[in-house]
Amino acid sequence: MSAASEFVPLQIAVLTVSDTRTYETDTSGQYLVDALLETGHTLQDRNLIPDDVYLMRAAISQWIADPTIHCILITGGTGFTERDSTPEAVAPLFDKEIKGFGELFRQISFTEIGSSTIQSRALAGLANNTVIFCMPGSTGACRTAWSNIIKEQLDSRHKPCNYVGVLLKKQHKDISSIKPFCETRK
């Protein structure tokens, strides 16, 4: 089996943004941890912090600068309440925004929760060859995002496109055996 058809595990950090949850009550963060481990990725770090722009930026910036972290999954703080500030905290850190993530997440969510999906400001982007996905705080929303979008995009075998090649550049690994970030459609 060639390396291009093998699964390449990534190192992922999970951040829960909440003023009320603890690790014991954080079902969304725990879902993401369980899902990424079940898929074959490695949990590199996990944190739970209050919905504070500067605490979020500090934690995320450390992970972005860490060459061993390929992906950051963030749950919480994407709504419209006064304290929801994940988009404001994270978007300025992006080198490039992944515009399609939020739109696709809301499209899929529409089939599950109807027009309430417009209450989500889910977003994603790349910063220092680290992909960051920001999801709502509900476990159902995390399941929707992981199962329908993120899982495939973090799988080196997914065609025609995935993020693995871009993410491994952060560690300056030899990625010549991994299919390109996006193949041309045939």
Rank of each mutant, 00 (worst) to 15 (best):
Q153T: 03
A58R: 11
I149W: 11
E112S: 05
L104D: 01
F7I: 05
H172E: 14
S116M: 13
T25C: 08
A141N: 05
T75I: 11
E88V: 08
P160N: 04
S109Q: 05
P9I: 00
T111F: 12
P9E: 00
L154A: 04
V90P: 00
V90T: 11
V90G: 01
D45C: 01
G165R: 14
S147L: 12
I149H: 03
L32G: 11
F101R: 00
Y23H: 11
K159W: 06
F105Y: 06
V14H: 02
T130G: 00
E152Y: 11
F110H: 14
K170G: 04
H41I: 04
I132K: 00
T42H: 13
I149Q: 14
C161T: 13
T16D: 07
Q11A: 10
P92A: 07
A59L: 05
I69F: 01
Y31S: 03
G76T: 10
N148C: 14
E24H: 08
F101T: 03
G137L: 07
E103V: 10
S116F: 08
Q44C: 03
T130Y: 00
P136A: 06
L32F: 12
W63N: 01
A35K: 03
N162R: 12
P160W: 11
K173W: 12
S120K: 12
N128R: 12
G40P: 09
G137Y: 03
L104P: 00
S177G: 10
T39S: 11
T139G: 00
S115C: 09
C161K: 13
K159E: 14
L48Q: 04
C134T: 06
R121A: 07
T117M: 14
V33A: 10
Q44L: 06
G137S: 06
L123W: 01
K179R: 13
F133V: 05
S115P: 08
R185C: 04
L168V: 08
A127M: 05
S2H: 15
G140Q: 12
T86Y: 06
A35E: 03
A4L: 02
G79I: 10
Y163V: 09
G137W: 06
A58I: 05
R185M: 09
T27W: 09
T144F: 06
D34A: 15
G137V: 07
R21P: 02
E103Q: 14
A122L: 08
F80P: 02
L123M: 15
L32C: 10
A91E: 14
I74N: 02
W146G: 03
V53E: 13
A127N: 02
I72V: 15
K170N: 07
L126E: 11
P9C: 00
F105W: 03
Y54V: 03
A127C: 05
R143C: 01
M56K: 10
Y31N: 02
W63P: 04
V33C: 15
G114W: 02
R157Y: 06
F133S: 10
L167G: 04
I60F: 05
A59Y: 01
A124L: 11
D34F: 01
E103M: 03
I64L: 08
N47I: 14
Q44G: 12
P50S: 13
G102W: 05
I49H: 03
L168Q: 13
A3C: 03
T68Q: 10
L55I: 12
E88P: 02
G76D: 09
S138G: 07
G125I: 12
S115Q: 08
E38Q: 15
D66C: 01
G140F: 02
